[in-house]
Design a binder for these strands. Structure first.
Length: 794
DNA sequence: GCGTTCAATGTACCT
DNA sequence: ACAGGTACATTGAACGCG
């Protein structure tokens, strides 16, 4: 019979020494199915030396009588674009692959073995063109002696599945959860601290909570939670921080209590796997924190901040309970109610954030080919790499081994020094997807690169300026193929979206798709220059950036020849006077000369450049401010400074009154000195980028982290530390405290005046010759106004 | 011994 | 564990000074 299913998860098993692929999915009728494919064997390639005879090599291998070899085939492949003869070594089991490849590498006539490092499940998906989060059909028969799996039907495959066109997403059961641990000794530890609350919610509005008893016994929490999950049988489980923390915590708790955390579909426990994701067999376990980086505007990426940003649940409308207070809240009968509600709200946030992210995650999984539960956990470089592996496989290109490469820096984009001060009516022109388009236009790719010593006629190659790297004009390299596809597909999607109502399901899915496509296209240049990449090739990245410099510099020349004054530019953009006719002419010239598209991105009514590069603020026609690089945009400045600077910019750009801005700052400082600003606006957040001991110099956030650790609150590398500056003597790092350990009365407000608000405000006002001292003068208002009036009137 | 100078360190941003 | 280019605050050693 033919089974049609949407692929949710995949894993491999070994039964009686034979490898099996298990495909978990949902069929057209909404039944949960497991398809077991026993017809696929692992393999790798032995690359034959150029002068060797492939048949001789096969004979040589055969003579060794390796028992784990199933068969040998001589086939044609390509390696970095060059045709090679390889022996496809098919193995009887997955365990044998590594060992066998190691042995064959030593054989005469074998140059190297490749693709022995491709995981079996990914091998199966790629070879059979099977795509996670897509529909497939397969010839299969219902299993008689079924393995124990929590699905409606189990099938045995009779042939590999076939990918279908259908892009619809089936109705899935989604479960979200969050936990509260009880600890009076700092960071909760599973060997001593119980889980007192688990809150769950589903995408069909079912909310549940599981609580520990009065003695804080959590066996009941874990047992009832596990039973609930099994009964509900979700396809997707979502949480925040579940990969790095919660699954392991719950599992450890279960172990101590003699329980099993059987929340999957086969009675195994959640286990950490590739890229640090936690696998729950038969379901897709998704950690939303893995997707938080898609929202760089959110500087401190906690669940509540993300939910606030995505309009899931506003922070002002919530009662937040800090971790350090969990135990106190649990112990107090009245407060326990608040803690329970806080926990339930966390799970509601999980569900809301999941709704904003899941479409994107599915599209990314679908595009890249990594299973849904892997895709978030995989770093950007690995996403690009799997996308490339999947797409190069089709053209017979072999996947290089990952080898450690020395890091050799190279030149990047051009950044112009801005014409500091205020400019009116400024147009921003930029090259759309500059690096991908350069790689397409000049066929820059690992498989088209012509090494220095290789003779080739100049007419056959594109030669990058300055660096002189050469790439064949023909045939198209795989970057060109793949990037053209991505750019075309994105354009098609975006034009399709124009004809669809924005609230429709279809629009949302298309939007998620175009975002996924954009992520991969944008990361491909960086991938080429990443020393960890399998296809790392410095000349590829270096040629792209060299072409980029060449083109932006020619563009500036041409603009100026046109009579357009360029006031700033960075990598792929130029800022110039907004003269539509001249701009149109310029765009046309660029298109003809370089076969690249430059477009009018936006126009600023008024823009202010500081003396520095990469820092400016502009007023858009709709009245919004566009602020770039300045303190307002930074997560490591106190909110007081950011708010003051933003208001100063607004006054200066909209009302064009530096005087009024000065008065605002002076008033703001008075309020700050009276401690009338919220305490939370004084918190400074900085990332711990390495273990506290490894810092070469003393640093405020590290000292704050050490204070937290002394009280049992451990921070991991990558965590953000929130601290405030308090009164006292000595270095700055000696005068900081974690924000939850300090009280407002001990805060050193003068620090915030002189080192936060004043510098941030002065950054803008220095364009108007306002000095920091002026901002710090606090005379009576009338007197001040007069003095300023006199000052600005000269 | 103490203030000044400046390279080094550290973080976060822009494209 | 995608690239290079850049700004900026703070630290701490070197320096100058009877």
């Amino acid at each position: 019979m033919v089974v049609t299913f949407w692929l949710l998860d995949v894993n491999s098993e070994v039964k009686a020494d034979k490898p099996e692929i298990w495909l978990w999915g949902i069929d057209k009728a909404g039944k949960r199915v497991l398809v077991v494919d026993r017809g696929f064997l692992p393999y790798f390639y032995a690359v034959i030396e150029e002068k060797a005879d492939p048949e001789k090599v096969v004979e040589e291998i055969e003579s060794k009588q390796f028992s784990s070899i199933s068969r040998l085939d001589v086939v044609d492949r390509r390696f970095f674009g060059k045709p090679v003869k390889v022996v496809k070594v098919v193995c009887k089991c997955t365990d044998a692959v590594k060992e066998l490849a190691e042995a064959l590498r030593e054989l005469e006539g074998v140059r190297d073995c490749l693709e022995d490092d491709i995981r079996f499940t990914m091998r199966y998906l790629i070879d059979n063109n099977i795509v996670p989060c897509s529909w497939h059909e397969i010839e299969a028969i219902e299993e008689i002696n079924s393995p124990d799996a929590q699905v409606d039907t189990i099938y045995a495959a009779k042939s590999p599945p076939k990918l279908l066109e259908d892009t619809a997403v089936p109705k899935l059961r989604i479960l979200g959860f969050s936990t509260i641990y009880y600890s009076k000794e700092g960071s909760p530890k599973p060997d001593r601290n119980p889980v007192v609350i688990v809150s769950t919610a589903t995408n069909f509005s079912e909310e549940k909570q599981f609580f520990a008893d009065e003695e804080k016994n959590d066996g009941i929490v874990l047992e009832t939670f596990v039973n609930y999950v099994r009964k509900l049988d979700p396809d997707i489980i979502v949480g925040y921080g579940v990969n790095s923390q919660h699954w392991l915590y719950l599992r450890e708790r279960c172990k101590r209590l003699g329980l099993r955390l059987y929340v999957d579909r086969t009675k195994t426990e959640p286990h950490t796997s590739v890229y640090g994701h936690v696998s729950v067999t038969g379901r897709a376990n998704i950690d939303l924190s893995d997707f938080a980086s898609e929202f760089p505007e959110v500087k401190v990426q906690t669940l509540e901040n993300l939910a606030d940003y995505l309009d899931v649940m506003k922070i002002e409308k919530r009662r937040i309970v800090e971790d350090i207070d969990f135990a106190d809240y649990w112990d107090d009968k009245e407060k326990r109610r608040v803690l329970k509600e806080f926990s339930m709200d966390n799970t509601r946030c999980v569900m809301g954030v999941a709704e904003a992210i899941l479409d994107f995650a599915m599209q990314l999984s679908n595009l890249v080919g990594l299973p849904l539960d892997h895709i978030g956990a995989a770093a950007a470089g690995f996403k690009v790499e799997w996308f490339l592996i999947k797409n190069t496989h089709k053209s017979g290109e072999l996947v290089p081994k990952r080898i450690e490469q020395p890091y050799i820096p190279y030149l990047g984009g051009v950044v112009l020094k801005p014409e500091s001060g205020v400019h009116e009516n400024v147009a921003v022109l930029d090259f759309k997807s500059m690096y991908p388009n350069l790689m397409i236009a000049y066929n820059i790719s690992p498989d088209t690169y012509v090494p220095l010593k290789e003779p080739v006629s100049p007419s056959q190659v594109y030669e990058a300026p300055e660096v002189k790297h050469r790439f064949l004009k023909e045939p198209a390299g795989f970057y060109k193929a793949v990037l053209s596809y991505l750019i075309n597909v994105r354009n098609e999607i975006r034009s399709k979206m124009k004809d669809i109502p924005q609230r429709s399901v279809e629009y949302r899915v298309l939007d998620a798709r175009q975002k996924a496509v954009k992520v991969i296209a944008n990361a491909s240049y960086g991938y080429a220059g990443w020393t960890g990449a399998r296809w790392y090739m410095k000349p590829v990245a270096e040629a792209a950036s060299a072409w980029g410099r060449h083109i932006i510099l020619r563009t500036i020349e041409m603009a100026e020849n046109e009579g357009l004054k360029v006031v700033y530019g960075d990598t792929d953009s130029i800022f110039a006077e907004n003269e539509p006719e001249k701009i149109r002419k310029l765009s046309k010239e660029i298109a003809e000369l370089f076969r690249l598209e430059i477009s009018l991105d936006k126009v600023y009514v008024r823009i202010l450049f500081t003396e520095a590069k990469k820092r400016y603020g502009g007023l858009l026609p709709d009245g919004r401010l566009d602020i770039v690089g300045l303190e307002v945009m930074r997560g490591d400045w106190a909110a007081v400074a950011k708010k003051a600077q933003e208001r100063v910019l607004e006054i200066v750009l909209k009302e064009q009154s530096p005087q009024k801005a000065v008065e605002f700052v002076q008033q703001f400082i008075r309020e700050l000195r009276r401690r009338q600003v919220p305490y939370r606006d004084l918190i400074i957040w900085k990332t711990l980028t390495k273990p506290a001991e490894e810092y070469a110099v003393k640093a405020s956030h590290v000292e704050a982290a050490k204070m937290l650790r002394k009280k049992g609150w451990e921070l991991a590398v990558g965590d953000k530390v929130g601290y405030v500056v308090v009164v006292g003597a000595g270095h700055l790092y000696e005068r900081v405290k974690p924000y939850m350990f300090a009280s407002y009365s001990e805060v050193d407000v003068e620090y915030y005046v002189t080192k936060q608000v004043v510098p941030a405000a002065a950054r803008i006002l220095e364009s108007f010759n306002v000095k920091e001292e002026t901002l710090l003068e606090s005379k009576r208002i009338e007197k001040e106004n007069k003095r300023l009036t006199d000052y600005f009137n000269g």
